[in-house]
């Protein structure tokens, strides 16, 4: 799909993000797969999720921001695991998110293969991504930052002010 946002644009954006992150110890890093040129950006984040019964579950998110060739936009993939390493399913994650109850889970989240690692990840629906992403292409110097700042809230990903300055 031609969105006018190429992989090279993407790599420039994530490099910029990682440079800012390094100064702030914010945890973003660039990764790649062996024998593959495509780079992606990852970060881990631990937090508590509130259950319906008032219980708190300690979880760790691992975010991956990679470029999807088929959609021509970045995709936000993530995995969530408990303290012992067992992963949360899409339904389990949703049930631990009281704040998201108003939105339709399947319009927002899906499970897809990671564009680079080719393993299943929970993914912010890429159709939604194109929708959100398009307006930023014209107005933002770093569309990846602009997009993440909008969609991050679905996955407990908060973007610091310093990144917004890049846009």
């Amino acid at each position: 799909m031609d969105t006018g946002f190429s992989y090279d644009n993407f790599e420039k954006c994530i490099t910029e993000i990682v440079n800012v992150s390094n100064k702030l110890l914010d945890g973003w890093k660039i990764e790649s797969k062996q024998d593959c040129d495509a780079k992606f950006m990852t970060k881990k984040h631990s937090t508590y999720l509130d259950g319906l019964d008032g219980s708190k579950t300690l979880v760790t998110f691992e975010y991956h921001v990679a470029y999807s060739l088929s959609y021509g936009v970045p995709v936000l993939c993530f995995n969530i695991w408990r303290q012992d390493g067992t992963m949360l399913t899409i339904e389990e994650y949703w049930s631990l998110n009281q704040s998201l109850k108003d939105s339709n889970m399947h319009d927002t989240l899906t499970q897809m293969d990671h564009p680079v690692l080719c393993r299943p990840f929970l993914t912010l629906h890429p159709c939604k991504t194109s929708e959100f992403f398009q307006p930023f292409l014209e107005n933002s110097k770093n569309p990846v930052v602009s997009w993440l700042s909008v969609v991050g809230s679905f996955v407990h990903l908060q973007l610091l002010e310093d990144y917004i300055k890049c846009c």
Partner: peptide
């Protein structure tokens, strides 16, 4: 441990992952 103190979690989390088995530690300054 993350170098930067966590603000979202009040427990000191020691993490282990696949890189735990590497011979050299790569802390990436973080």
């Amino acid at each position: 441990f993350t170098l930067l103190s966590k603000t979202t979690v009040n427990q000191p989390l020691i993490e282990l992952d696949s890189t735990s088995f590497n011979s050299d530690f790569n802390g990436q300054n973080m």
